[in-house]
Design a protein around this nucleic acid. Structure first.
Length: 718
DNA sequence: GGGCGGTACTG
DNA sequence: CAGTACC
DNA sequence: GCCC
């Protein structure tokens, strides 16, 4: 197994490994919890020796791992010990260790065959980005079964609903996902807080409960029998959910018996009303759940950062930190769900799908998508993208190489090639299993032939020839464009003049203001700061703000709001509730004067065009007493545009692009001022109408209008 | 072969 | 206007 | 660069 991870491990000579994570799946569908730390010897990590002394609790019983089947490097500690993730076979799994490569390469049938027990390592496809990787031509779907007659009225049938499909075969999952999306619903392959419906074929309550990680996630979403969807598709309206409810409450009767019984059926309209009502109440009650509360707590924390903390002068730092903790927990949850998802169908009610008129069906789908369907799954904003700090990506080695190439193209003027690399890299980053071949890579959405070839080369040779050619040149370009205000164009121009160092620039080039500042503070500005420092800086601004007008509100945006452990700059959004007839006009000017006078702001990078506008944006350099110089970005925002602005200045950039692209596919336009409908973009029409603002005040309203699950900031890190 | 986010400051 | 910036 |  010339696995990348193995190579990395092999490069180190002396070390012990701390076995920190042990996550695996049992053949019966149970999932192991993380286990304790222990120290193992190197040879135990090669996969040749059994892990002996480790016991793993499944919650129900204790089992002994019999063999290591997969090892991946998680982290190298300062003391050179390593934290690794290990997948283990359990005692009951006997001698059946075909080399995993073989198993992986088999296109499809392997999943259904007897090896389907060791699911965790076998399925490299447990992530959406790789959704189509194993789409085998052999996949058969019975269209007649999944979708009989369609009425015209069912087009937006699932609007506002967000599904998670659990424990069903991949191809069935794909088909159903498509059906849902065609009708305006959203589908996530990872469970997230915004999921409104979990659909499952599993009726065994105990098993289901376990798969739902012991009830933790059943809170927001109801679990319905997949038949609910089938019936909805068949009849063109959403049937009463209660009848199909599997979890949290299980009706004594089997859903089957109810499926077609006439007496349970109401008129479409009745049902729709009933349904809408139910949905509404669910939303209301969901606001009481733990996570929603945390999200909201953080919102108000940051929006306010006021009243309560002005007495002691210390912002509620604690409450912010605990949101990070909660996000970690959330990550774990997602990870577990991902694993569960990776399992082969435990119960496959439709295993005997017959061969329908497949080709026709495919054409139908294609046409449907073209006409009105938006493939939500292809938008990164549709899924949770949490911060990954505690794990190392299984494709880290590949990502590193691609990122070098990406860096290179960034210093080129080939912007779109750069974007292409960026997309491919984000897609690969979401994978949770190592890529085995160029072929496999090629099937990832966002990875085309060229990048797939490069991935192949990296897998096979461990390196990328292309990278070797452009090294020294690229270093200088990176050095130069690291100066604030210097981009690829200028960097190349300088280099073609023969400059190679920052001193060359200092001594030979007359720089405009922003670049001069950028060069002056080159090192300081590349030093990222802690969240605490961000809070201290914010507090300074906040204090001055309160002296101007106590009703001003301030929020920290950017990477801080996304929960990153360190930040490159500080983004501050300032607004004021205008219900009392006053607003924050002119505040930017007063604020800047104060901050400059007190010596906090040391330099300006860009000033707002119109200081008297309610929308202003300032960029500059500030420093705490005895602190490093920091980049600070201050905005004032009309009160009713705060939601749009929060989204725009929370990011990250990839997330924003994804959202905005999705908006434009829906003939909407999203920017920092709001979400706008029907913008006239006439070819010859010089006058482009702004369009009508359909949402702007809150993030929730905008997500809702876009049909995107309402992502808390911590999940906007693609 | 066209599209790929939307906006704003600088010089 | 091109270039660079912000997320 | 990738995707339609």
């Amino acid at each position: 197994m010339t696995n990348i991870t193995a190579q990395r491990l092999a490069r180190r000579s002396t070390f012990y490994k701390r076995l920190r994570y042990v996550e695996s799946a049992l053949s019966d569908g149970h999932v192991l919890k993380r286990s304790h730390s222990t120290v193992v010897n190197r040879h135990e990590l090669t996969g040749t020796l059994p892990v002996k002394r480790s016991r793993y609790s499944t919650g129900d019983s204790d089992l002994v791992a019999s063999q290591v089947i997969d090892v991946k490097l998680e982290e190298v500690e300062p003391d050179n010990s390593m934290i690794v993730g290990v997948n283990v076979k359990l005692e009951d799994v006997k001698e059946r260790d075909k080399p995993r490569q073989q198993q992986i390469k088999e296109p499809d049938p392997g999943y259904q065959s007897d090896e389907s027990t060791d699911t965790l390592i076998l399925d490299p496809l447990d992530h959406e980005a790789a959704e189509n990787v194993l789409d085998s031509p052999k996949d058969r779907i019975n269209p007649a079964k999944a979708e009989p007659l369609r009425s015209q009225s069912d087009v937006g049938m699932f609007h506002g609903l967000h599904f998670h499909l659990l424990g069903m075969p991949r191809r069935r999952l794909n088909l159903l996902s498509e059906r849902i999306m065609e009708r305006d619903g959203a589908v996530s392959h990872a469970y997230s807080n915004s999921v409104t419906h979990i659909l499952s074929d599993i009726h065994d309550v105990a098993k289901l409960q376990f798969m739902l990680t012991r009830g933790k996630i059943g809170l927001n979403a109801r679990v319905l029998d997949t038949k609910w969807l089938a019936d909805a598709l068949q009849h063109g309206f959403c049937p009463d959910e209660q009848i199909y409810l599997i979890y949290p409450k299980v009706t004594a009767e089997s859903p089957e018996s109810l499926k077609t019984s006439e007496n349970t059926r109401k008129s479409p309209k009745q049902l729709r009303n009933h349904f809408i009502k139910r949905r509404k109440s669910r939303y209301e009650s969901s606001s009481d759940t733990e996570k929603d509360d945390k999200y909201r707590a953080m919102e108000s924390d940051s929006i306010e950062l006021d009243a309560s903390d002005e007495e002691d002068g210390v912002p509620e730092i604690e409450s912010k930190n605990h949101t990070i903790a909660s996000s970690t927990q959330h990550d774990d949850l997602n990870k577990i769900i991902e694993q569960v998802k990776a399992q082969p169908e435990l119960i496959d009610l439709d295993a005997s799908e017959d061969d329908g008129p497949e080709q026709k069906e495919k054409d139908d789908n294609a046409e449907m998508s073209r006409r009105r369907g938006i493939q939500y799954e292809k938008f990164l904003c549709m899924k949770s993208n949490p911060i990954m700090t505690d794990t190392v990506n299984p494709n880290e080695f590949i990502i590193e190489k691609l990122e070098e190439l990406h860096e290179f193209y960034k210093s080129t003027n080939d912007h779109w090639r750069e974007v292409g690399y960026q997309k491919a890299i984000s897609a690969i980053k979401t994978l949770q299993t190592p890529l085995r071949s160029a072929d496999e890579a090629r099937r990832i959405f966002g990875v085309g032939g060229r990048i797939a070839d490069k991935i192949g080369e990296i897998i096979n040779t461990g390196q990328l020839q292309k990278l070797k050619n452009l090294d020294s040149e690229n270093e200088v370009l990176k050095l130069f464009s690291g100066i604030y205000g210097v981009g690829p164009s200028l960097a190349r121009r300088w280099m073609s003049k023969g400059y190679t160092t920052l001193d060359d620039i200092r001594n030979n080039v007359t720089l405009p203001e922003s670049q001069r500042i950028g060069l002056k503070y080159y090192d300081e500005l590349h030093n990222r700061m802690s969240r605490e420092e961000v809070e201290q800086i914010a507090q300074v601004v906040k204090n001055e703000l309160m002296k101007i007008d106590e009703k001003l509100e301030m929020t920290i945006g950017g990477s801080y709001r996304r929960g990153l452990p360190d930040c490159g700059d500080v983004d501050l959004l300032i607004t004021r509730n205008d219900e009392d007839g006053k607003n924050h006009q002119g505040v930017m000017k007063q604020l800047l004067k104060r901050l400059v006078d007190m010596g906090f702001i040391t330099n300006h990078l860009a000033l707002p065009g119109q200081f008297e506008d309610l929308r202003t944006r300032y960029m500059g350099i500030c420093a705490l007493p005895n602190g490093l110089h920091r980049h600070i970005d201050i905005l004032t925002v009309p009160y009713n545009e705060m939601g749009a602005c929060l989204i725009a200045y929370t990011g990250n950039d990839i997330f924003n692009r994804s959202l905005r692209l999705l908006a434009s596919k829906k003939k909407l336009r999203l920017n920092q001022m709001g979400l706008f409908a029907e913008v006239l973009r006439g070819a010859s029409r010089a006058k482009i109408t702004e369009g009508n603002c359909i949402a702007s005040k809150t993030e929730e309203a905008i997500f809702e209008a876009l049909g995107v699950p309402c992502r808390p900031p911590h999940e906007r890190n693609p």
